[in-house]
Simulated scan of single mutants.
Amino acid sequence: MRNLITDVRGVLVGQAHDAQAATGVTVALFERPTVASVAILGGAPGTRDTSLLEPEMTVEHIDAIVLSGGSAWGLSAADGVMAWLAGQGRGFPIGPLRVPIVPQAILFDLLNGGDKPWTKGTTEPPYRRLGALAAEAAALDVELGTAGAGFGATTQNLKGGIGSASARAATGVVGALVAVNAVGTATIGDGQHFWAAPYEQAGEFGGHGWPAAIAPEDLDLRFKGGTGQNTTIALVATDAVLTKAQCKRLALAAHDGLARALRPAHGALDGDVVFAAATGRSGAPSDAFALTELCTTAADVLARAVARGVHAATALPFPGAKPAWRDRFGG
Rank of each mutant, 00 (worst) to 15 (best):
G163A: 09
S164Y: 06
S164W: 11
A165K: 01
S166V: 07
A170L: 13
A170N: 09
A170W: 02
T171L: 07
G172C: 06
G172R: 03
V173P: 00
V173Q: 11
V173I: 15
V174E: 00
G175R: 00
A176I: 03
A176G: 01
L177K: 10
L177E: 09
V178N: 13
V178P: 08
A179D: 03
V180Q: 10
N181H: 07
A182D: 00
V183W: 00
V183Y: 02
G184V: 10
G184P: 05
G191S: 03
Q192T: 08
H193P: 01
H193D: 07
H193C: 07
F194P: 05
F194A: 06
A196P: 07
A197I: 03
Y199I: 01
Y199F: 15
Y199A: 13
Q201R: 15
G203E: 10
G203P: 00
G203L: 10
E204N: 11
F205L: 11
G207M: 03
G207K: 00
H208E: 08
H208R: 15
H208C: 11
G209L: 13
W210Y: 14
P211I: 04
P211K: 06
A212H: 13
A212P: 03
A213C: 07
I214Q: 09
P216M: 08
D218G: 10
D218I: 09
D218Q: 11
L219Q: 12
L219V: 11
L219A: 06
D220M: 06
D220W: 06
F223V: 12
F223D: 00
G225K: 07
G225V: 04
G225E: 14
G225L: 12
T227Q: 12
G228I: 03
G228A: 03
N230S: 13
T231A: 07
T231L: 02
I233Q: 08
I233T: 04
A234R: 05
L235G: 05
L235E: 11
L235I: 04
L235K: 12
V236G: 05
T238S: 10
A240F: 08
A240I: 01
A240R: 10
A240C: 05
L242S: 08
T243S: 15
T243K: 10
T243L: 08
Q246V: 08
K248D: 12
R249P: 02
R249G: 08
L252I: 15
A253T: 09
A253D: 12
A253Y: 04
